[in-house]
């Protein structure tokens, strides 16, 4: 039943002399929550950005759903259902919170020039469904009262939440979340992960970078530990915490 969704094979990415990602291979299978942890600067975000097509890998190949995506543009990768929420939120500050959510919807008919003018009936129907979905997600993220505020007026934590919300709006097959609970209060951080768990039961898969291990390890099924561009430890959360190598790279003890 579990199939490999994302396969990262021998991927490297360097910036000048810095090997941010150095020969990483890993598999993400469907139906679970996968964690990625590691010290600051260990290459986690770079790995995500490479998967998303924002960086071209210097070496290695990336497959999504059995298809090589290493040479696709970011918007093409997104269209396949591989979606991301950035570590540093990149919102559309002049647009309302609601519009930020709606614009992230995948496969909206009204996104096309001629449809937007001539197929108004059919995209309006879609728009209505998306509005309900957006409200549901905004409620989870406790942003529903700000639906009509400009995204540029949100607080730092709220921006982070909206970034996650946009990822949810895309109805992805696999959602990459880069520190979804960072800068969010502990109670809400946990609620977000509970929301993620609900979505997982509905069939979504997640690959999550998170420094808040006390939350992540309660929800993740498998954790990869990265250090200096390499995967050094992997396993179930309860195994990883027992692993001395994990303590050494991450907690420095």
């Amino acid at each position: 039943m579990e199939e490999t969704l994302l396969r990262i094979s021998e991927v490297s990415k360097h910036f000048g002399g810095v090997y941010a990602v150095n020969g990483v291979s890993l598999d993400i299978k469907s139906g679970s929550i996968w964690g990625l942890v590691g010290p600051n600067g260990s290459g986690k975000t770079t790995l995500f950005n490479t998967v998303l097509g924002l960086f071209r890998p210097d070496e290695g190949t990336i497959y999504f759903d059995g298809r090589c995506i290493s040479n696709l543009a970011p918007h093409e990768i997104y269209a396949l259902g591989l979606v991301n929420a950035f570590q540093l939120p990149r919102l559309f500050p002049g647009l309302s919170v609601l519009d930020n959510m709606l614009v992230a919807a995948r496969g909206h008919q009204g996104d096309r020039l001629l449809n937007s003018l001539f197929l108004r009936k059919s995209w309006q129907r879609q728009e209505a469904e998306l509005a309900d979905k957006a409200v549901e997600a905004l409620e989870l993220l406790q942003l529903e009262h700000l639906a009509f505020s400009q995204a540029g007026e949100l607080s730092g934590g709220q921006r982070k939440l909206l970034e996650v919300g946009r990822g949810l709006m895309a109805s992805p097959t696999l959602l990459l979340l880069d520190e979804p609970a960072a800068g969010v209060n502990p109670k809400l951080g946990r609620r977000i992960f509970e929301g993620i768990e609900d979505l997982r039961r509905k069939g979504l898969s997640f690959f999550i970078i998170e420094h808040r291990l006390e939350i992540l390890f309660d929800f993740a099924h498998w954790v990869y530990v990265m250090d200096k561009g390499k995967i050094v430890v992997q396993g179930k959360p309860e195994e990883v915490v027992e692993n001395p190598a994990f303590y050494q790279v991450y907690l420095g003890e």
């Binding site: 543009a73 918007h75 997104y78 950035f86 990149r90 919102l91 647009l95 930020n100 614009v103």
Partner: peptide
Amino acid sequence: RAIREDEVAAEALGKD
């Protein structure tokens, strides 16, 4: 409008 606000973010959200 989203592309006007942030081209890269719009691209990452599937907009060519």
